Simulated scan of single mutants.
Amino acid sequence: MLCIRGVVLPEREERSFWIDGEVLRAGAPPGGFAGRDAEVAVDGGWLLPGLVDVHTHPGATDPGTSFDEDLLRAQLGEHRDAGVLAVRAPGTAARMPAWVDSDPELPRVTSAGRWLATPGRFPGFGRDVAEDGLVRAALEEAAASSGWCKVIGDWRADEPALPLTLLTEVVGAVHAAGGKVAVHCQTAEGTRNAVLAGADSLEHGMHLDPALLDRMAAQGTAFVPTLGVFGAKADAMRAREPGVRRDLWLAGWDTMFGNVRAAHEAGVTVLAGTDSFPCGTVAGEASWLMRAGLSAEAALGAASWTARAWLGLPGLGDGAPADLVAYATDPIADPAVLGHPGRIILRGRVVR
């Protein structure tokens, strides 16, 4: 049987475990670590629950391409090989196939069905639906996925966002059914509407009004800023000729570091999501969160234990899933090692 011992983060406690099928058991295994059946998979170092990417879209290379199950498997494998053992896919071009939940070699997937877009927003990339059918569509996607649905709350920077009254109705109906709602928002109006409607997560949240942060914290609305994907575009956007869309985009980007830091300080759950390819790069998003002003511990939590708790997944303890990554050095003291774990264990099996 596989045995593990090391310093568990974030608690910073030395602990020992053994693996019983796909589950962790606390303490020494029957017969001890030197027993005939014991195989020590990790002996010392630093232990984290598996890393998490809460905004990734495996199965396609961009929203305009067809959903491909072979690509889905390959991209989930990229996540796993980087130590990302749980992902949330907030909207895709197609619903996740049933085999995703049962494949022992792939990360645990929380899906949100197809993107839901009303006319003029995100055309042709997900499920296009008229405004009077949005509530029903949101309930259908939440029921067909992991309980989440994803609504495109706005699209073009200079065009109106989804009406607040409609988004509020969507969120209320999905919550009443036991589900959750993620909202894509990049404009001031779209972000404001998502918060006032009571969305469970803001995806991107450009132009977020800091006056809304206390409300977000109180109602449990998480902030997934996907800083890396925006940061990678910033220089190219600055090089463009001035225009309404370019100028609004840059105005939003220029406030994001301050808003992310202020959100964390206000008690909002800030999470790491990449929204980019290749997959398996959530450690880079944690670095962007640190650049925005989060401590190394908070940024690593956003890509591990905090994100897992938010998704309803436990950390490292007796009876928890045997999903973990191990490092020779403390990744809080040296965040550069986060994307390079020395040992990866998923569902009780050694991946690397």
Rank of each mutant, 00 (worst) to 15 (best):
L311R: 04
T168M: 00
P30V: 11
A232V: 06
L324R: 07
C149M: 10
G228T: 13
A194M: 09
Q75L: 11
L106T: 02
W115C: 11
C3S: 13
F67Q: 03
G83I: 05
L166D: 06
G301H: 11
S102W: 03
E203H: 06
G133N: 11
V100S: 01
Y327W: 04
V170I: 09
A112L: 01
L51P: 04
E105Y: 01
A272Q: 06
D101M: 00
G113T: 06
V171R: 04
P97N: 10
H55F: 05
G315V: 10
M256L: 15
A272R: 02
G113K: 01
G312P: 06
W305M: 07
L71E: 07
N259P: 00
D154A: 05
G153Y: 03
R245M: 12
A320Y: 08
G178A: 12
G198C: 13
W253K: 09
A173Y: 09
E78P: 01
A82L: 11
G21F: 10
A211G: 15
P163T: 08
V229L: 12
V135R: 12
A222G: 02
A309E: 15
W46C: 02
A142E: 11
L271R: 02
L76Q: 03
P123S: 09
P314H: 00
A286T: 14
P58G: 03
Y327I: 05
R352A: 15
K150R: 10
A272D: 00
G50C: 04
A302P: 03
F17T: 07
A74D: 11
E105G: 15
G220N: 09
A336L: 14
V260S: 08
W148C: 05
L202C: 03
E241C: 00
R245E: 15
H79C: 14
